[in-house]
Simulated scan of single mutants.
Amino acid sequence: MNLVEITLQALDEAERAIPPGQPVYMLNLLCYRAHARYEDGFDAAPCSGREAFHERYRPAFRRLAAGKPLVRIFSGPVLASLVGSPGEQWDEAAINEYGDFATFRAIVDTETYRREVAPHRHAALEHFRLFALAKAM
C-alpha cells in the first residue's frame, strides 16, 4: 500500500461522506524522507524531503490552488507524541481549511496536480496521513 497517494477511491468515499457546501479542514501528518526520492524521469535536483515539500510541493500546490477559497490555519513541527502507535513519528502537522470538499477535490483530482505537484509530495514523504474534518458544532 502506498502511504502517500491520494486515491480516486478515497476521494469518492470522502465526497459521499462529507455534506456538500460545508467547510472542511484537512489534517495532514507528515514524515519526511532524509533525501527526496523522485521517480525515474522526473527532473529535480537532489534535496532533502523537507526541502522537496516546503520549497517544491507547497509552492506548486499554492499556484494550482490560486483563486480557490483556501485558508492555511496552522503548520508546525510535531514536538512530542503523547499517544500513538509505537514507532509512528511525525515531523510536522498541518491543518488547511477549504470552503468545501469539492474545492479540495478540484485541486488534487486534476492531471496538472498528478503531473506537476504530487511528484514532489511523493518524493518528500516517507509516511503521510490525511484526514478530512468538520468543524465541531
Results as ranks from 00 to 15, higher is better:
65 A>Y: 02
90 W>S: 00
35 H>C: 12
136 A>S: 15
17 A>M: 05
10 A>H: 06
111 E>N: 10
113 Y>V: 11
101 F>H: 03
14 A>H: 07
25 Y>K: 00
67 G>M: 07
129 R>Y: 00
49 G>F: 00
95 I>L: 07
62 R>N: 14
40 D>A: 11
70 L>A: 11
27 L>E: 10
108 V>L: 10
87 G>P: 02
94 A>P: 02
132 A>F: 01
84 G>F: 00
7 T>N: 12
124 A>Y: 01
45 A>Q: 15
78 V>E: 07
18 I>Q: 02
43 D>G: 09
70 L>F: 14
81 S>V: 08
135 K>T: 04
74 F>T: 05
62 R>L: 10
59 P>Y: 09
7 T>H: 04
79 L>Q: 15
7 T>Y: 06
55 E>T: 04
55 E>Y: 08
107 I>K: 08
112 T>C: 13
118 A>I: 02
103 T>K: 09
65 A>K: 03
117 V>A: 09
108 V>N: 08
100 D>E: 13
24 V>N: 02
120 H>G: 02
7 T>P: 07
36 A>F: 00
87 G>N: 04
100 D>M: 01
8 L>T: 15
119 P>Y: 03
111 E>G: 06
91 D>T: 02
105 R>K: 15
77 P>R: 11
128 F>M: 02
13 E>G: 07
18 I>A: 12
41 G>C: 14
103 T>H: 10
26 M>L: 13
107 I>M: 08
22 Q>T: 09
33 R>N: 04
1 M>G: 06
39 E>H: 15
27 L>T: 00
75 S>C: 12
25 Y>N: 04
70 L>G: 01
74 F>D: 03
40 D>K: 10
132 A>E: 01
103 T>D: 08
15 E>V: 05
1 M>A: 14
93 A>C: 13
69 P>E: 14
79 L>P: 04
94 A>L: 01
132 A>C: 05
119 P>D: 08
56 R>S: 05
26 M>Q: 09
21 G>F: 10
45 A>T: 14
136 A>Q: 11
94 A>H: 05
123 A>F: 01
4 V>T: 11
62 R>W: 15
49 G>L: 00
8 L>Y: 14
91 D>W: 03
3 L>N: 10
124 A>H: 00
65 A>I: 06
89 Q>I: 07
106 A>C: 12
62 R>P: 01
67 G>C: 09
19 P>T: 01
35 H>F: 13
81 S>K: 05
79 L>K: 14
108 V>T: 07
109 D>I: 13
